[in-house]
Design a protein around this nucleic acid. Sequence first.
DNA 1: ACCATAGGCAAGTAGGCACTTGCATGTCAA
DNA 2: TTGACATGCAAGTGCCTACTTGCCTATGGT
Lengths: 87, 87
Amino acid sequence: MFKALADPTRRVILDELTERDGQTLFELCTRLAMKHEVTSSRQAISQHLDVLEGAGLVTTRRDGRYKFHYIDTGPLRAIAQRWPVQT
Amino acid sequence: MFKALADPTRRVILDELTERDGQTLFELCTRLAMKHEVTSSRQAISQHLDVLEGAGLVTTRRDGRYKFHYIDTGPLRAIAQRWPVQT
DNA sequence: ACCATAGGCAAGTAGGCACTTGCATGTCAA
DNA sequence: TTGACATGCAAGTGCCTACTTGCCTATGGT
């Protein structure tokens, strides 16, 4: 999961899914290019999504030829638990 | 900061500093080798500490020929703020 | 059936990063 | 001052990873 968060593009993907959850690959590609100035290709974004899914930060749901991506911030809880953040 | 967290050895260093704060480079090397089975050399650990310090996750205090390392979990707050963790 | 759309697979490439190696600097004790 | 100790600097090496390229599969509309 930590390696998944290490890439700036993947973090922007999580930002975009936070703002609008359940996007398809193409939706993400266009919106990332528009609002976040991400120039990556479709394949690059797809591979990033695979990494995020492997890290448990993104879940997917298939419907016909569309695949929707949802953010899951659950794994992030482990960070604050591992290194207690004093308030 | 995210790249700093991406390396397993650096995360173990943070673990060790959580358990015992304010260690020197040599202390860390020996304790990491003992308890966490880290086989990295002194120089490797030193470079990791530089990265952690650059990420703001570790602060240092120099006293004579000793340099003490302290964990700072402050930057970790930004994670939960960026991607709200639902409870 | 045909075609466009949405996505997947896999090999190759370039750059970054962790680690080593060797030497240098600085500090303290005797 | 001399030697041992704690740390720092810098170049070189090998691996990992992000990205591209090219082609393939599958779904849905007409």
